[in-house]
C-alpha cells in the first residue's frame, strides 16, 4: 500500500510469518509458534524456579519474589474481588493464564522479536473457548442444568413482560458472544498496538532517509507508544484473567 510516497508494508506482511521448521505440514513452526514456546518456557521457568528457591530458603528473593507477588496479585485483586474465597481453587489456572498471556504479549516490545504472538487469533480463541467450557461446566455443576439455564436466561429482578426482550439477548450474549468478545478483545488490542508501532517505525525510517531532523517527532512518538504498549500488554492479560474470573464467579454464585 502506498501512502503519499511512503512505503507501508501490507497488513499480511506484518502478521503472517513463513514456516521455519516442518514447512508445509500442519505442524509447521513459524515465529508465532516459537514465541508461544518461549512464553510457555518462561511461565514454567518462573514458577519452577521459584519453587526450587523455596527449598533453599523461605525468604522470597529474586524469582520467587516475582512469582509470589504475581500469585498475591491474582488472589487479592482478581479472585477476592470477583469470586470470593470459594474461587481460590481457580488460583493456579488464573495465575498461569495471566503469566502466559503476559509473556506472549510483552514480546511486542522486546527488541529483536517485536511481534505480539497474541495478534494471531488461534491461541486467544482457544483460551476463550476453554473458558467458555469451564464456566458452563461450573454453572451446571453448582446449580444443576435447569437451574443454570433459568438463572442465566431469566435474570431475577426483571419485570415479567420484559423477559420477551431480555431472554434472547441473554441467550446470545452469554452463550454465543462471550467467548468471541473475550478472544477479539485480546487479539484486536495486540493487532492495533503492533500496527501503531509499525506505523511510527516506518515513518521514522522514511523521514530519517530524507530529512534527518524530521524523524525526531515520529521517533518520540515511537518511544512513547512503546511505553504505552508495555502497559497495554499487562492490562490485556489482566483483563482476560479478570473476565474469566467474573464469568466463572457468575456461574458459581447466581444473583438472587
Amino acid at each position: 500500500m502506498d501512502l503519499l510516497a511512503l512505503e507501508f508494508p501490507p497488513v499480511s506482511h506484518l502478521f503472517e510469518w513463513p514456516d521455519i521448521f516442518l514447512d508445509g505440514t500442519v505442524f509447521g513452526i513459524n515465529k508465532t509458534v516459537l514465541i508461544y514456546f518461549g512464553a510457555v518456557a518462561a511461565t514454567l521457568g518462573l514458577f519452577f524456579g521459584a519453587g526450587r528457591r523455596y527449598k533453599q530458603s523461605l525468604v522470597p528473593a529474586g524469582m520467587s519474589n516475582v512469582a509470589e507477588s504475581g500469585v498475591d496479585f491474582i488472589e487479592d485483586s482478581v479472585i477476592m474481588q470477583t469470586m470470593g474465597p470459594d474461587g481460590l481453587k481457580y488460583l493456579p489456572f488464573l495465575t498461569t493464564m495471566f503469566f502466559f498471556l503476559f509473556f506472549s504479549n510483552i514480546t511486542e516490545v522486546i527488541p529483536g522479536i517485536q511481534f505480539p504472538a497474541n495478534s494471531r487469533m488461534a491461541i486467544p480463541l482457544l483460551l476463550a473457548l476453554l473458558v467458555w467450557v469451564i464456566y458452563n461446566v461450573v454453572g451446571v455443576r453448582s446449580q444443576g442444568f435447569f437451574g443454570y439455564l433459568k438463572n442465566s436466561l431469566f435474570p431475577p429482578g426483571v419485570p415479567v413482560a420484559l423477559y420477551i426482550i431480555v431472554t434472547p439477548i441473554e441467550l446470545v450474549s452469554t452463550f454465543v458472544v462471550r467467548p468471541f468478545s473475550l478472544a477479539i478483545r485480546l487479539w484486536a488490542n495486540m493487532v492495533a498496538g503492533h500496527l501503531l508501532l509499525v506505523t511510527f517505525a516506518v515513518l521514522t525510517a522514511t523521514l530519517w532517509e530524507s530529512t534527518y531532523v524530521g524523524a525526531a517527532l515520529p521517533f518520540a512518538m515511537l518511544v512513547l507508544m512503546t511505553g504505552f504498549e508495555i502497559l497495554v500488554s499487562a492490562l490485556q492479560a489482566f483483563i482476560f484473567t479478570i473476565l474469566t474470573a467474573v464469568y466463572i464467579g457468575g456461574s458459581m454464585h447466581p444473583e438472587h
Binding site: D76, I184, L235, I239, V246
Partner: peptide, 30 residues
C-alpha cells in the same frame, strides 16, 4: 480505590469491545 479500579477496568473492557469490533471490520474491509 482498589475495588473501584477493578470494576473500572471491567467497565472499560466491556465498553471497548464495540470499538474493537469496529477495528476488526476496518481490517477486514481493507
Amino acid at each position: 480505590a482498589g475495588m473501584v479500579r477493578t470494576t473500572m477496568f471491567l467497565g472499560i473492557a466491556f465498553t471497548e469491545a464495540l470499538a474493537l469490533i469496529g477495528f476488526v471490520v476496518f481490517i477486514l474491509l481493507l
